[in-house]
Design a binder for these strands. Structure first.
Lengths: 231, 231
DNA sequence: TTCTGTGAATAGGTTCACAGCT
DNA sequence: AGCTGTGAACCTATTCACAGAA
C-alpha cells in the first residue's frame, strides 16, 4: 500500500534469476505471524497448526498456509509447524537475521515515544540516534540516547551506520529532511509526517498517519450508524 | 488491511438496499486526497486536475479518477475539480461532517504524543479524554486534558460521549481494556498495542504497529541489497 | 480540444478443495 | 486419519482506453 519501488524494469538478461519474491500483502502478514510465534514461544508452546496460528493472527488458515508457502515448506503434514523452526525461517525470509540500525529524526512527543518503545530492540531494530532541530532539546537524554543536532544529520548517520530512518517531525520540514537522509545513503524510511513525500526510485518509503486511520474508522462508523435502509 | 467487520451476513431481506459502498482500498486513498486538497486550499489554489491531484497524492491519475467516481461526479470535464467543492464532498462521503469524540487509553509516551498532536482537531477529531492506570500519572495534565483514572473508564466514556477509542497501552492489558471499551458501547477502535485483539462483529478495529512497519522495510531493504543474481 | 467518468482488460489477492506426506 | 502445501476458481483492485461533457 506504500510506494514500492516504482522502477518496473524487468530483469536485464531475461534469464529468470528473479529469486522468489513474496507478495506485499503476504509480507505484511508474515510479520504478524512472527509476533504470534514469539508469543507462543514465550508460552512454551512448541508445535502449532495452521488453524490455531491463523486464529491467533486474525487470518484464515488458507491465507496463512498460502503465505507460508511463499517462504517455503517448513511444516509437517498431519502434524503442524514447529514454533521455533518456523519463527526462524520467517525471520530469515524477512531479512531479520542481522540487526538494523535505526535513526529517529524528531525528538518531539512521538520521536521520544518511539525511542523509548521497547518493542524495537527485541525484534532486531537498534535505535542508534535521535535528532532534533530545537537547540533546547539537543543534548537532552531520551532513553539511552542523547539527542543530536539535526544540523549534524549526515555525519551522525554515517558514524552510527544507520540504515533506516524514522521521520517523526512536522509536515513542513519532512520533505527537506527526507531529501537529506536519502542523500546520506539511507534507502529505507518510515514516515509519520502527514504529507506525501517524494522519493527517488530505489528508496523504500512507508507512511503511517494516525489521522488517516481515524478517518477510515469514521467512514465505517458512519456506515454502521446510517439507517440508509430507506426501503 | 485491518480486520474489517468479519460478519459476512448478507442484507436480511435480500432487497438490495445496500447503498453504494466504497471499496476499502479507495477509502484509504480518499483520506490522502483530502489531505492534499486541504494543502491546496491553504495555498489558495481553487481548481485542480486529476493529473496534478494524483501526483500530489502519490497515485496514478486513473486510480484517482476511479476512486472519485465511487464518491460521485464532482468534476467538470475539460476543466478539473474545484478544490473546496471536492474537499467537502469527499469529507461527507467519509462521514467527517460531524465531529468525532476520541478517547485515548494510555498516557505513556505514545498516548501523550497522540493527545498533543494538533493534526486531529483540525480534521474533525476531538480528543475528549485520556486515561492511565498509573496513579502517578492520573490527574496530571496532557495538552488541554487531565488524565483520568483507567478505573473510571466506563463512566468517563459515557459522560464525554466518546465514540472512538485509541489504545496506546502495553500488549499485556490491551485485550482487557479493549473488552471494557466495547462493553461501554464504543464500536471504533484504533490500537497501537502490538497484539492481535479479538473483537465481536460490528466493532471496527484498526491496528498500527511500528515494529511491523520496520520489518516490512527490512524485507525490501534485504531484497535490494542481496545480489541473489547467482547466474 | 481538454480532461473527466467509466466500461473493459489485466493484475493481484483470497478462498476452495483436494492431492500428498506423515 | 490428520494437516500441510498448492493448483484452480473466485473476487478485488488497478490500469487502459475511449466516450462524452464543457
Amino acid at each position: 500500500m506504500t510506494s514500492l519501488d516504482s522502477s518496473p524494469e524487468a530483469v536485464p538478461g531475461g534469464a529468470g534469476t528473479a529469486a522468489k519474491q513474496i507478495p506485499p500483502a503476504a509480507v505484511a502478514r508474515l510479520t504478524i505471524y512472527l509476533r504470534a510465534l514469539t508469543t507462543l514461544l514465550a508460552e512454551g508452546v512448541d508445535r502449532v497448526s495452521s488453524e490455531s496460528l491463523a486464529e491467533a493472527s486474525g487470518v484464515s488458515s488458507s491465507t496463512l498456509r498460502k503465505d507460508l508457502s511463499y517462504v517455503g515448506s517448513y511444516g509437517t503434514r498431519g502434524v503442524g509447524y514447529e514454533v521455533q523452526y518456523l519463527n526462524r525461517h520467517i525471520a530469515a525470509a524477512l531479512g531479520l537475521t542481522h540487526d538494523w540500525k535505526v535513526a529517529i529524526v524528531g525528538a518531539g512527543n512521538l520521536g521520544k515515544a518511539l525511542a523509548r518503545y521497547g518493542g524495537f530492540e527485541s525484534r532486531g531494530f537498534d535505535i542508534v540516534a535521535i535528532f532534533d532541530a530545537d537547540q533546547m532539546v539537543v543534548g537532552s537524554e531520551v532513553g539511552w540516547l542523547r539527542v543530536s543536532d539535526a544540523a549534524d544529520l549526515e555525519p551522525v548517520l554515517q558514524r552510527t551506520g544507520a540504515n533506516m530512518v524514522v521521520l517523526a517531525l512536522p509536515a513542513a520540514v519532512a520533505q527537506d529532511v527526507c531529501d537529506r537522509v536519502i542523500a546520506a545513503g539511507v534507502r529505507s524510511i518510515l514516515s509519520f509526517a502527514p504529507v506525501m513525500l517524494q522519493v527517488p526510485p530505489g528508496v523504500n518509503l512507508r507512511k503511517v498517519d494516525m489521522a488517516t486511520e481515524l478517518q477510515i474508522l469514521a467512514y465505517h462508523a458512519q456506515r454502521a450508524q446510517d439507517p440508509e435502509d430507506a426501503d
